[in-house]
Design a protein around this nucleic acid. Structure first.
Length: 290
DNA sequence: CCGCGGGCCTGAGAGC
DNA sequence: TGCTCTCAGGCCCGCG
């Protein structure tokens, strides 16, 4: 589920109950998620003050007073919720799932703020790992990640340089986290639509012979910026699993122009189509995306 | 370097 | 109701 806007939404929701709070106890309720937990996973979290909660691509990164960093990835179906003991002062303030939902509560952080932060992940494609901050540069999970699409350094020149000479399509290039880090299937489809670029177009056409950006690259960067910023403002997209940490649904899914809209009309008079690319559904309008 | 298929998991929805 | 099938927002691997 979660692409950059969803992860950023989660980060903003968790920040108030994590930053400046101590993890009184971390609880891993099974031995693995996508990967086995490190043997000292909870030991390195217990008693640690979270000094900051950041994000890199689709990773959440909690800085700990010990000098460690907790990396968290939501995979396809991971979500966090904030639970507090019900009080007379704040009844029902937080999202409480019922029944089978809690069967997939795999990790809980009991915080000194009084909040319990619960990680739920039915498919268990998510993962968590504690690493030393000084080892971040060598961390295999982070190494090779391309630029942050909303970061200052990401511009048409950088995107064009990354795509120059690539023998692949724009769709595949944008999904490649080494080219730009944080986009997934939804926002790639939506950005290409906004830029009026075909998902089948050769990625190398973003650059001229000198690897300089073409007008297309500028258009695409603008579209990526716009769609991500709008999605973050909307609290992300809630299709199945995604919720903001306070339990609210995101609502950017109502703003999709092509994703999951096969057969529906495009504003240009065309019709949204779907086909499979790199094993995943691509949605686009053949009339206005060239 | 590239596309493709398969795998990791569970659950929702469609069709019968 | 319930079965079977397909598909899903991510990512990795091996093959040709």
């Amino acid at each position: 589920m979660p692409e950059l806007p969803e992860v950023e939404t989660v980060r903003r929701g968790l920040q108030p109950v994590m930053e400046g709070s101590k993890i009184l106890k971390a609880e891993a309720r099974r031995k693995d998620l996508r990967f086995p937990f490190q043997k000292d996973f909870t030991a390195r979290l217990d008693g640690q003050v979270v000094t900051g909660l950041g994000r890199r691509a689709k990773y959440l990164m909690a800085d700990l007073a010990s000098g460690d960093v907790l990396l968290m990835h939501l995979g396809m179906s991971g979500s966090f919720r904030i639970q507090k003991l019900e009080t007379a002062h704040a009844p029902g303030q937080f999202h409480h799932p019922r029944g089978k939902d809690t069967a997939h509560d795999h990790v809980v952080f009991h915080m000194s703020s009084g909040a319990d932060i619960v990680f739920n992940d039915p498919r268990r494609f998510g993962y968590m790992k504690v690493i030393a901050r000084h080892a971040i540069e060598e961390e295999p999970l982070l190494r090779g990640l391309g630029p942050e699409p909303l970061g200052n350094e990401f511009d048409a020149a950088l995107l064009a340089a990354a795509c120059a000479g690539k023998k692949t399509t724009l769709k595949a290039a944008l999904l490649d986290q080494r080219v730009v880090a944080g986009l997934g299937n939804i926002y790639v489809c939506e950005a290409l639509y906004r830029a009026h670029l075909s998902p089948r177009r050769q990625a190398s056409t973003l650059a001229n012979r000198k690897s300089e950006p073409t007008e297309l690259a500028r258009r695409l960067v603008d579209a990526i910026h716009a769609v991500l910023n709008e999605a973050i403002r909307a609290g992300g997209s809630s299709l199945r699993d995604h919720r903001q940490a306070n339990g609210d649904l995101g609502y950017f899914q109502h703003a999709f122009k092509v994703y999951d809209r096969e057969g529906e009309p495009c504003g240009c008079g065309g019709v949204v189509r779907r086909f499979t690319q790199n094993g995943r559904s691509t949605f686009w309008c053949p009339k206005c995306q060239k």
